[in-house]
Design a binder for these strands. Sequence first.
RNA 1: GCGCCCAUAGCUCAGUUGGAUAGAGCAUCUGACUACGAAUCAGAAGGUCGGGGGUUCGAAUCCCUCUGGGCGCGCCA
Length: 544
Amino acid sequence: MSLLVTDILKGALDNCRKKGLLEVKEIPPVLLERPKKDEFGDYATNFAMIIASKENIPPRRVADIIAGAIETGDIVRKVEVAGPGFINLFMNKIYWIRMLRDAVSKGEMYGKTDTGKGKKVLIEFISANPTGPLHIGHARGAVFGDTMANILEAVGFDVTREFYINDAGSQVKNLNESIFLKRKEERGEAVKWDENHYRGEYIARLAAGVDNIKGEGAEEIGEYALGEILNWIKRDLNDFNVRFDNWFSERGLYKTGKVDKLLDELRLKGFIEERDGAVWFRSIEFGDDKNRVVKRESGEPTYFASDIAYHYDKYERGFDSLINIWGADHHGYMPRIMAVVQALGHDKDSLRVVLVQMVTILRDGKPVTMSKRAGEYITLRDVLDEVGSDAMRFFFMMRKSDAQMEFDLELAKKQAPENPAFYVQYAHARINSIIEYAEEKSLELSGIRDADLNRLELKEEFDIIRFITLFPEIIGDAAQSLDPHRITFYLQELAGLFHSYYNRNRIVSDDIQLTKARLYLCSSIKVVLNNGLTLLGVSAPKKM
RNA sequence: GCGCCCAUAGCUCAGUUGGAUAGAGCAUCUGACUACGAAUCAGAAGGUCGGGGGUUCGAAUCCCUCUGGGCGCGCCA
């Protein structure tokens, strides 16, 4: 809707050009800001300053000329030039009331746009080895990926969520061995564990289950264990409200011969070389600091080899925009995968890799230690059972992906205002309760659609409306910069505005018309809280 | 040694991609319920944006450098 405002500015600029007041060879994109301070208006733009620097005219003068060409009336109340050359627009009440009606009438659709134009996007996340339960680091990636996918869908992309199952390679072999060893150990035989083996308690669980399967060959046990673990993973994710459209098997790439096919293709393009008995991909040609092995001396392909085929397959399926979400410890892998993208003939911007940083779990204010060697790590399931999906998801979305985070178990569990997840959900429940109260109290209130919104006149009411109108922009920003945490912060602020408004003002009163208008405003807040929480995969409870 | 990420209030963190006087929450003090959910709100206090240079009308934001922390640097995944 702020498009309307950009149109006004563009129109003014056009006028200046026609009248010969400004030359303006090229119109810069009009970036609208929402100033924090009231004195700077409802919308502000700095584009007069941008033009000025290109045309060599003092910025204030350019701003004055453009400002003079902006028509005031129903929509724009006042135009001011301020500071070094900002153009500040002050909007009329009628404009805000229209925006408010727009939000409420759109309901669940409010905030959604079609800027993505149905473009196909593949978002790959978690992609854990199916050699054990998901841990807390996976949980952060899971929330990030799922939320990001929700956001991209909201702005009109055709999103596919994919889990790449690393069910080939040596890790799986290690898993099988671990189960074998565990069984031996339980029979009282002496066994020798090495650092490649998995030692978590779930190995015992798997070992115990082996008795129930047919055959005890390595293959049968491997199949059984992978299937079992994958089921755990799926169940955890389901309870965590994380959805996938596709589970893509690494082994499938070998079965269909795609890995060899791709290596041949790259060989034809001259990106493959043989050295020291191994086969290498010349990633160095695309800025990697060394070439990478795709086939070992033993003839076995590496993980990287199948990953090449995997990414080729993504493009082949018609996705021209790929997003990979990785744990930050994989950052060293990035140059080689970017090299693959380019070697396959794609623009390097077509793949965006988001590195999600590490998580430290705090209990009683102290970090919980994990020992990979002893197989001790905190699983997604542990935390899910302890704090619940809503708080867990909300907490993970309170940090930007590239910052390490601390996850405070006690805080997440607290049913109190210092728990931000609770605070936002509470605002939603509270509004719901007020609306119910009003409906019970008076039948006349049943329809708030025809409320006379001119009855809204408090500054804080219009602050809320302005903030509501920000929502679509926030989603757009989050989508563009792959920063889902912006939604979380926005919701906290909106909840705060509401709580404050509620405490200062009576919503339901004897003044029926005013009550209706205020309920209308509250319902808009409810719409946005609901839509925002839904994007985060967090419930918007009517009661708590 | 090389590379990536981080450093903002006592603590945990935002900061709309270079804008105007740097913001929240928690913790700490002081206040507010015989009316719609006090699971809430109002107020106070809290800062050399890690240090130092540079780029320009303008820097927490971009560049260089130093310091401190995390993570990588395999014919593992």
